[in-house]
Design a protein around this nucleic acid. Structure first.
Lengths: 231, 231
DNA sequence: GATGATTTGTACGTATGTATA
DNA sequence: ATATACATACGTACAAATCAT
């Protein structure tokens, strides 16, 4: 359920320290634990993770490549603070990528994959009915991941996943909007129906609309909070 | 002309060493100067660039994030060696992203952007007529970049650019195929016509076909050379 | 299979450049 | 404006692991 591998904090380290730190920072940024604009001090993080500055530094540089943090040479690193416009651009891109994925997936998925997708959707419905946001979030994630995989294009699936991780912080914010959870679930239903009928174009259009609806909900939220975000 | 900023090798260094090294390595990988599978020894590269291992190491880690190189902990770094299947997946993804970009661009581009695109296409035609591959490559790049920008979605434009850089090594290989250059130019023409007519869907389909044609040309090349690539 | 050589991974120190008083 | 404080960027040293013999 987590982007990072289950590091037991103790056991022998098979992976690179910098990778583990990068994963943990990614999670913390995606979850909002580290909010946009937060300063990331090398020494401070090193102390917090109990390592030297070196792996921390490498992790930060890597995060800069994927755009999660912003580095200004000699001026320090902060969690990427995005403008409302950029966030909307990201959302639109995500919407198009998702639309693309579901179209491709419709034409290529196996019966097994379709049944798995249906299962996930029903689990999401139940979570929405229970108003269990954490659970809905997880299942929702799995639903979209299942679509990525069903494209049978591993590269595209990776790209889509990476994008989704980058947008996580915003997605949860957006899901908190009134009634979004059950409405989102309804939209999934109609997407799934198009997939089951084998109509990729329709599924694609519905997915795009689904994502853009979410974006619009978010935009209202952002705009109303813009002043304080800027401070 | 080059992904890296024009570092004059001499002048005062305004940018980070690790960034400059990363850019140079990116170019060398994209150009095929560093072929897939080539080992990238930290010390060796440090000597070559006249710096210590630290910035080299950071550059390598960053390249790993974008997938250009493969790192196995304690076992070193090699230029990402991709299977034919993965390359085809990348091409297909690129084709879809390009199709998406041109569709969006068609609906959003300004007259100025359209005229710039037309100019670039004509320059490409001339280069193709002269069989000047280097020049064609450059202008072709500019043509696609112009489309990305005309989407008026900065994030999508960045993503598309990044993808294009990753595929550079293959694209040039592919362009060497017999007659590809002029045929590619013809395909651009038909895409441009659809754009000018404002038919985004048509432009999109033609772009996808254009990219997939290129992919097919490449696949033949890869498959005939697979044995030696594997060695 | 064990030992040595090579190379990576991590830690730490120093200097340069940025921000602040 | 100058100087001081501070965090980063790079270099160097050491440790650990892989590979070659």
């Amino acid at each position: 359920m987590n982007a990072s591998d289950g590091d037991g904090e103790s056991g022998e380290q098979r992976t690179l320290l910098s990778d583990r730190i990068r994963n943990r920072l990614t999670d913390q940024i995606a979850s909002g634990e580290l909010p946009a604009g937060a300063a990331l001090d090398e020494q401070q993080l090193a102390d917090r993770f109990g390592v030297s500055r070196t792996p921390v530094r490498e992790a930060l540089h890597q995060l800069a490549v994927s755009g999660l943090v912003e580095m200004r040479p000699r001026r320090g690193v902060v969690v990427a603070r995005m403008t409302a416009e950029r966030i909307m651009d990201m959302f639109e891109t995500m919407a198009e990528i998702e639309a693309l994925c579901v179209r491709m997936a419709t034409y290529r998925m196996t019966p097994l994959e379709l049944s798995r997708l249906t299962e996930l959707h029903e689990a999401a419905r139940r979570a929405a009915a229970d108003e269990d946001m954490d659970r809905y979030d997880d299942v929702n994630h799995a639903f979209h991941e299942a679509i990525y995989l069903a494209t049978h294009n591993a590269f595209l699936a990776e790209q889509a996943s990476a994008l989704r991780i980058r947008m996580n912080a915003f997605r949860r914010t957006q899901l908190r909007q009134e009634g979004r959870m059950s409405r989102s679930s309804d939209e999934h239903q109609s997407i799934l129906e198009a997939v089951a009928q084998g109509d990729g174009e329709l599924a694609s259009r519905r997915m795009r609309a689904h994502m853009l609806t979410a974006a619009t909900a978010l935009r209202r939220f952002i705009e109303s909070h813009e002043a304080e975000t800027r401070a």
